[in-house]
């Protein structure tokens, strides 16, 4: 909703096994950004946004991984 460039689907994995297969869904939730970037689990908002930016090449996988090692910042 915050960007006209983003569309977001909920996909029920059991009803669409071919998609669950295609995107290697072993556990849920699993989020797929632009077919290429994946994130397992319900992650904090900043990580979710970082994965989204990774999918459009504005962040590298390493930069996103680094966020997991950083202690959460207050107010973020």
């Amino acid at each position: 909703m915050e960007s006209d460039l983003i569309r977001a689907d909920m996909v029920e994995a059991i009803e669409f096994p071919h998609l669950a297969n295609k995107y290697h869904v072993m556990g849920v939730p699993r989020t797929v950004f632009n077919e290429t970037v994946h994130q397992e689990g319900a992650v904090p908002e900043p990580i979710f946004v970082a994965r989204l930016l990774q999918a459009v090449g504005k962040m590298s996988a390493e930069e996103v991984e680094a966020l997991f090692r950083k202690p959460p910042q207050s107010g973020s």
Partner: peptide, 17 residues
Amino acid sequence: ALEQLTEPVHIQVFVTP
């Protein structure tokens, strides 16, 4: 962060009931 976007993004969240 989302203001930086210049190309479309398709998010698919896989769930189970």
